[in-house]
Simulated assay, not measured.
Amino acid sequence: MTTETQTRQVVRAYHEARFRGDIPAAAAQLARDFTFSSPLMTSTDPEGHLKDLPAFLEVVTGVDLLSELYGEAEATLVYDVYTATPVGAQRTAEHFRLDDGKITSIVLIFDGTPWQEIMP
């Protein structure tokens, strides 16, 4: 198996587990030394990153994967997330870095402005 194929398997396993709400399966793809950043939050460990996932998924009504790009130790997914909120559809890009078959960092890129208006 090539490194690029392994990268694809790990990233897709994480993406699919996260959007079906399978926190243990998503966490299994993350390294202990993990960082996450987005326009609305940051985290430095898998637990902190996934703790609010159930609440987020309560408003998600669908996800359409638009593009997947894979390299040896990085990947980028572009997708639309559909929500039952005033935000509606959110175009999102997600960049992953991997080491030794685990995701070490995720940078989530989207316009956070509509979310700031509805967050407590």
Score class of each variant (00 low, 15 high):
105 S>H: 10
77 L>K: 12
91 R>Y: 11
84 A>Q: 08
111 D>T: 04
101 G>Q: 03
99 D>I: 15
116 Q>A: 07
90 Q>S: 15
79 Y>E: 15
111 D>K: 10
117 E>Y: 07
80 D>V: 02
108 L>S: 11
92 T>D: 12
76 T>Y: 12
78 V>D: 15
104 T>C: 01
84 A>H: 08
100 D>Y: 12
107 V>H: 13
93 A>Y: 13
102 K>M: 00
100 D>T: 12
102 K>A: 00
96 F>C: 01
97 R>V: 08
100 D>K: 15
102 K>W: 04
92 T>P: 09
91 R>M: 08
94 E>A: 03
86 P>V: 10
100 D>C: 10
78 V>M: 14
103 I>G: 00
92 T>S: 09
80 D>I: 01
103 I>P: 01
76 T>S: 07
89 A>R: 10
112 G>I: 01
79 Y>S: 11
76 T>P: 02
111 D>S: 03
112 G>K: 03
110 F>S: 13
88 G>E: 11
94 E>Q: 13
83 T>E: 06
109 I>A: 13
90 Q>I: 05
87 V>N: 12
106 I>P: 09
111 D>G: 09
85 T>S: 04
114 P>Y: 11
94 E>N: 07
93 A>V: 06
116 Q>I: 05
92 T>R: 04
115 W>A: 06
105 S>V: 11
76 T>M: 11
86 P>R: 10
118 I>Y: 01
114 P>F: 09
106 I>A: 03
94 E>M: 04
101 G>D: 00
116 Q>R: 08
81 V>P: 14
97 R>W: 13
102 K>L: 02
91 R>G: 13
115 W>K: 05
91 R>W: 07
85 T>A: 04
91 R>P: 12
112 G>F: 02
82 Y>L: 12
108 L>R: 12
112 G>Y: 01
83 T>S: 09
79 Y>M: 07
89 A>T: 15
116 Q>G: 05
117 E>R: 14
79 Y>I: 01
106 I>G: 03
109 I>P: 11
